[in-house]
Structures are given as C-alpha cells and as structure tokens.
Design a protein around this nucleic acid. Structure first.
Lengths: 183, 183, 183, 183
DNA sequence: CATGAATGAGACTTCATTCAT
DNA sequence: GATGAATGAAGTCTCATTCAT
C-alpha cells in the first residue's frame, strides 16, 4: 500500500517529466513545470528524487526499455533475415510521421546536458549500444555481423537528419542504403 | 582597421559566445558568462545585440560560413571524383579527434533551442542544405547526383554517433559505406 | 496566531509594497525596493506572489476594504440624512490634511498602470462603484437617490484637485456644492 | 536654416514623446521608444534636451497652450453668459468620446511623476490655475465669480471620473451640477 | 515521512545618460 | 555640433534545492 502510493508519486513525476523533457528538452523544462503538471508538491518531489538529474535518469531508463522493446518488435515483423533489418527502418518511417514525434529521446539529450553529467552520457551510450547489438543479432544469421555498426550509423543518420529537416526522406534514404549494404 | 575597432565589441561578444555555446550549449550559457569572459559590460552587449538569440544567429552564420569553407577545402584535396567525396569524411576523421571538438555546432543546437525559435531552425536547415548541395556537386561529375542525400545521411550519422560515443569508429564506418555507395 | 506566522511573509510584502506604491507610485516602485524594505528575499517574494501586478491587486483589495470601512464609518457620524452625506466630505477634509496623505490610492493608479492591466482597472472601477453605491444608500432616505452620481463626481473632483494643488480648498468647495445640491 | 533643422529635431522629439507620454504614460515611455519612433538618434536627442524630464516640460507647455486655446474657443460658442460656462462641459462631452482620448494630460501625470519633480507639479498647477481663471472670467459677467472654483471642481471631477469608468455620464453629471449652480 | 515556506544565485532585458570622436 | 558606442544601475522573474515543522 505504502509502496504503491510512493511509487505512484514517483511514476507520476516520471510520466510528466518524460513528456516535458521529450517535448521541450531537459534544460528548458523546469522543476516548477513538472510539479505544476504532475500535481505533486515540490517537497514531495524532492523526497522521491534527490535531483532533477535523477528524474532524467529514470526517464532514460524507462523510455530506453520501451524503445528497446519497440525496436525488437519492429524487427520481428520482417519476413526474412534481410527483411528484419529493413523492418526497423520501416518502423522509423512510421514513427517519424507520428504527431507527437520530436526526434530520438536520446539524441535530443546528448547535446543539451551539462558537461559534467557523465552518468547521463553513459546511460545514453548504453542505450545506443543496445541498438548496435540488436543490429548485430539481426545480421548474424546472414553472416554479416560486421555490418552492424554501419547499419547503426544509418539509423542515427536517419533520426538526426529527420530532426533537422522535419521530413521523411532521410529515413527513406537510410533504408535505401541499408538495403544496398545487405543485399 | 576602422572596422576592427568599430565591430570590436560585436565580434568579441560573438567570439566568446561562440566558444561557450559550442562547448556548453546555448541554454547552458548565460549572458552573464558571456559578458564576464568577453569583458563587455551587459548594457553594451545589449546595444550590440537585441537578444541572446540574436547572438546565436550571428554565431550560426559565422560558424556556418567557416564550416562551408572547410568542407569545400577538404573536398578539393581528393584526387579524383570519388576521392573528393571521401576526402570530406577524411576531414571529419581528423576533425573529431581534435582536442576542442564537441560535435557538430548545428546538430548540437537542434534539440536544445526553444520550440518557438523558428529562425534558428531555418538557419540550421539552410546550413545543412548547403552540405547536401556540396555532396550533389561532388557527385555530379560521376553522374551519381542522386546519391547526394544518402551520402549526406552518412555525414550526419557519423557526426551524431561520434558525439554519442565519443569515438572515431562511426566516422570510419560512414566513410566505408560511402566508399561502397560510389564505388 | 498560526495565520499570522503563515501569512507573515505575504503580509509583510503587501504592507511594504502598499506604503511604497502609495507614496511613490506603482511604476516608480521596484521589486528590489520592496524586498529591501520588507526584508523578504526576492525568491520568497515570488513564491508568495506570481507577479508584481499580483501584489498590486492585493494592495487594491486590502486598501479598498479599509477605504470602504472608513467612508461608511465617516458617514455614520452625520447627525441626519443630509449630515451623513456631508460627513463624508468632512472626513475628506481631515484626511487630506494628514501628514502621509498623497491622494486617493485608486485615482493615483489609474493613469500609471500599463495599458493592458485590465484587471487593475476593473478593481478600481469596482472600488469606485462602491462609493457611488454608498452615496446612493445615503441619499435614498431623503428620496434623492438620483443625486448619487453627482455627489460622487464632487467626491472625485475634490480628491483629484487636492492632489493637483495640494490644498484643502477643493474639498471645501466640493462640500459646499454638495450642501447646495441636497439642501 | 540651421535653426529650422534644430527646431525640427526638437519638435519631432516633442511630437513623438507627446503622443507616447499621453497614451502610455511618462514612466511607461522609454527614451528608446521615443528615438525609435521619432527617428532621432539618441545622442542628438540629448543635445536637444538635457533630460527626459525636459522633454516632459516641453510637452506640458505645448499641450497646455493647446488646451487653453481649445477651452477658450469652446467657451466662446456659448450663446449667453451661462451658456459659455456650460459650453465648456459640452466640449468635454465631445472630447471624451474621441477615439484617441485617454484622459486629461495633466491629471494623468500628477500621480506618476517622481516625487521630486517639483517643476512638473508647478507647471501642472499653473495649467490648472489657468482653467480656474477661465471659469472666473466666464462667471464674472454674471457676478458669480465666487463660483469659479466650484465649477472647476466639477471640471476635474468629470475628467477623472471619466478616466476611471471610461463612460460619458460623469461629464453629463458634472454639466448638470454646473447648470444648477449658475441657474 | 510529507510538506509549506523559504532561499541564494542567476536568468534575460531595459533604464536614462555620457563619452570620445 | 552631431553621433555611434558605451555604461552602471536597475528592471522583473525563475532556477534547482533545502529547511523547519
């Protein structure tokens, strides 16, 4: 019971913060906005999380897990080995056209966090290494494991170029390259 | 001479701001730090620039021109048509290993600027479209102009993945892909 | 007791601000002066009030209530119906001769507030409508309710002319007219 | 020639400042806005006027003269002695309904000027004494000179109550009282 | 343990004025 | 004498965090 309440507060904070961090950015989102929109009192927030950065970490972990799952699921939709890799890009094509898509959570953060926030960088790297591993695992059956990082570069390039231009073509282009690489 | 004196303050502000914006990010750099490190008093800064965002715009324009020139110069070092394209990636390989390299100016900004800063986004898009055009012009002699955006995705992927992992391999991987594409 | 402690800061701010707003004007009084003279630090002030205008509103409400009470009390000192109306002007005659009298709170504000401060204007109108109603209620027993607004004009004329000339005669003149009107 | 240019600048400043002081108030109007809207360079403004308050003084003198003339002219439209007095109120009735009417220039200033601006207060008093004298001169032929200040109170009451409520009725009420007083 | 109140530091911007040419 | 550049002081408001109950 107690724990449920406690976790309820924690999760309410994370949910609100996640939405705001993602939409507005971490630095542009203030604690005051988080408490205003989550309905949690400020001092309660600070008993649930020691610092704003702690909330960020929780956001990274949770959205990281969701992202992992989504990518894995997307890959599984591919009909054959090659198709599984390309299915990830198909997923991106849909994703970037969603109404509330504002780019990749993790890439969005990488430039905006304070220089000394090492654990945040570490977490983002960990997340992205998961993607690299995913591609490696998808390429392995084809015996093309060594292409993993190249496909990964396409993945990142698609996402960041989409963020810059706010168009779908970067993802299309990335998919096209991927298809050539693993043909 | 005259101009140096006349624009001394303006340029001193831009120089300092550029360094700080690049190293720490735009939001993490306050006007107070800019005046402290440039030696310009606050009110003088605000006669030179109407807002902090105006300083950012000048930074974008100036560093954009420098970047354009550097990329063009880098490309010219390539021995043949294909070599010119790859020379851009060679340039990146050197660049990302420089001591004071903190990623691409423009990509660094794209996620941290306030949602309503449309002119900033426009300027970044303009800058990046310049890169796309550069690749198009390099590919044209080979009759492979249609690969321009694909190469561009590699360019961005290399930069952002380097930012994330702080390693050279993403640029190497991007170059490798580029080589395959235009082989 | 509790309440005193609880609202101590809020009221300290309002008290100091009221004094300064009244003596120097709203625009001529800065937040910095309010915090300096109230002993409340800036951030605390801004947890108690969202904006400077919010402090102004509280000042209007509080001084408005006090003014209402004072006028009602003054009127009650009149011996008969006619006397009650004139007693209000007698009150003004005393008031304007007080050492710390700087004119009518509300009239002082009406010209200096920013053009977009609609709620401030509304509050002042509400306050002044209270005075009109007071005169109406005092005149009703005499069956001269229709004179309320005329008496009110005298009230305002007395106050503003006193402010301009810093002399008592405007109030005397207004009282004299009032006497004629209701004779 | 020189003088014309010099006076041209002076007058351009006064014209712009007058408009802004009247519409927004003195404190709410900054030097920067004056130079922006008058097209006069800041340093030139400060050779034409030593301080912002000097501009205000010139504004008071010029608009004061215009007001004097307008009131005199209005009075002359009255058909008989009594009519001349009431004609002043008829003028006000029209005036307050004009699109760009924001209250009486002089009353608007009286509460907003810094406490130490004695010469400004003096000038406003002088202006208002002119109105009192006008009423005295209009009442003299009727042998009712002693009513001058009472009529004057009505004049001020009408103006300030109109400013507060933004309605015509205060002027109507004032006129009605005036009619009774001099009947 | 939950919380209302408080905080020091700093955010960006504008003020009226003066100085050096 | 006109002016572009510079200025110190002050403007309102927000930051992430902590303390006393």
């Amino acid at each position: 019971m107690r724990n449920e309440r406690k976790n309820g507060v924690r999760q309410a904070i994370v949910d609100t913060a996640s939405r705001l961090f993602y939409k507005q950015g971490y630095v542009n989102t203030g604690i005051n906005q988080i408490i205003a929109e989550s309905g949690v009192v400020k001092s309660t927030l600070y008993t649930a999380f020691r610092t704003k950065e702690d909330i960020l970490m929780e956001y990274l972990v949770q959205s990281g897990a969701a992202t992992d799952a989504a990518l894995k699921l997307a890959a599984e939709k591919g009909k054959d080995d090659k198709g599984k890799v390309l299915a990830v890009f198909d997923y991106l094509i849909d994703l970037v056209q969603e109404k509330e898509f504002y780019g990749c959570n993790f890439l969005n953060l990488i430039s905006e966090i304070p220089t000394d926030a090492e654990r945040v960088i570490k977490q983002i790297q960990k997340q992205k290494n998961g993607v690299r591993k995913l591609f490696a695992s998808l390429l392995e059956p084809m015996g093309k494991e060594e292409l993993a990082d190249e496909i990964y570069i396409l993945f990142e390039g698609a996402l960041i170029a989409n963020k810059v231009h706010n168009k779908v073509w970067p993802v299309d282009a990335a998919k096209k390259i991927a298809a050539k690489l693993i043909s």
